[in-house]
Design a protein around this nucleic acid. Structure first.
Lengths: 239, 239
DNA sequence: CGGATCTTTGAGCGGGGTCAAATTAGGTGG
DNA sequence: CCACCTAATTTGACCCCGCTCAAAGATCCG
């Protein structure tokens, strides 16, 4: 959900057609209508856990988290990685309790948006409601896009797609798209891509051997983005 | 999105807490605020295609459809099967164009809900907006649940989970959960479960050999639901 | 310095994919 | 209604990608 970024206050025109508002004009506005609690979460700690009461949405202000789906019989699946500007907890809207875990992968700062006030703000500001709906729709598209990747690409190509996704999200936050530090371990990448951690490790090693990337533990450099894009099944060289 | 069912008109209490409204009190209400066009789609035809302008949501009134994600380089992934009561097109909210295909698997009747009127209705009836938001959240949970299944279960267990899902949705519509006709081919099941059609075929044959089901082409009977549930990683015998 | 965790790499195996063929169902036009 | 054609399904044989098991670094922590 990386289109929702915390933006500096923007003149809000409620009369202007909501769907044409650029994604930057978004949930960040909630801070002006809802009392936002700032919350620190240390690496390894849970922001929320499956089964806990749902009472707030969370906006990542700084740091890095993963969300995990878990089953009754103990299986676990990483469903996404969340960074600055991403909204967490939306999957629990309409429920009394959370249905997945959110775990900090590094020390993070989270803006907690208590849900009843959020609901009230949404009622008073239709544009905000529409932005939230659009954000949920985008989350669905993102999940489906990963279903496509996982359902149709072999291991190495999934890893390439993953690296490009992280790179793109870094770029949108103003960081380098070519050089970054992974905040998660091989096992988390593997779970997310429906692989095993050894396979991820081998794929990264191989991508390095063919000079598409350079990788040393968690430090990654993308050396040949067009080739990576081609590998990941994203033929367009532009964008 | 099977929690959204077309319900008989229910007295709407805008003052009552929206989150406690049972799922049956839902989007069906839109028909009283939006001019609904009834649309027939024959088996094999598209309800909408990726790239077409987005101008409506669609409620399945009768029939059966699949949604497909597709990539620039021609890969294709079935992302879901939709039946009576399911809402389609929500993934395109906030966009000018659809990003996936919806294809009828049998002759279907669809209620078309033009989006601008829907938007207007949502603005006037906060409860309806909240139901739509909750429906999107549920769609996210459904997708993530399948990610867990596909990411952590081997082929035969995925097929078991699939059969139980179809059975449960049939039951919610008042049909038999133990005996049903699949509306999709092996290839569509396979794509949805990130398998090959031969693997699905073999899994079904094996489930029949161990007497968990009986299957003849598209006719399926569930002979041992508890065992199937255990296989699919859903240990609770109740519900 | 010592222990826990993460990562890499190797060796070997097996589940699921690939390729192929047989069978059956369904649709269509004569 | 039947003959034919096309598409769907099943099953077999074989193979390979990714998993399993194992061990050896590397890094980080106390």
């Amino acid at each position: 959900m990386d289109s929702i970024v915390v933006s500096p206050p923007v003149a809000s025109r409620h009369s202007q057609p909501a769907l044409d508002v650029p994604p930057e004009v978004t949930i960040g506005q909630l801070q002006r209508h809802v009392l936002v609690a700032r919350r620190k979460v240390r690496a390894g700690q849970y922001l929320y856990r499956s089964g806990q009461p749902f009472h707030a949405l969370y906006l990542v202000h700084a740091g890095f988290l993963k969300t995990c789906e878990l089953s009754d019989d103990g299986r676990e699946q990483v469903t996404g990685f969340r960074m600055r500007g991403d909204l967490l907890g939306v999957e629990s809207i309409g429920l009394a309790h959370h249905t997945c875990d959110a775990v900090a992968l590094e020390d993070s700062e989270i803006w907690e948006l208590p849900y009843p006030p959020v609901l009230a703000a949404l009622r008073h500001i239709p544009e905000l409601q529409e932005r939230l709906t659009a954000a949920l729709a985008e989350e669905i598209r993102r999940d489906r896009s990963w279903m496509l990747t996982i359902g149709t690409l072999p291991a190495e190509q999934r890893v390439a797609a993953f690296l490009l996704d992280i790179a793109g999200r870094h770029a949108r936050l103003g960081f380098s798209a070519r050089h970054f530090i992974l905040r998660m371990g091989r096992a988390d990448i593997a779970s997310f891509l429906a692989l095993k951690h050894e396979t991820v490790s081998r794929a990264l090693s191989h991508l390095e051997r063919i000079a598409y990337i350079s990788v040393l533990r968690r430090e990654v450099k993308l050396l040949d983005v067009p080739k990576l894009r081609e590998l990941a099944g994203m033929p367009c060289t532009v964008q």
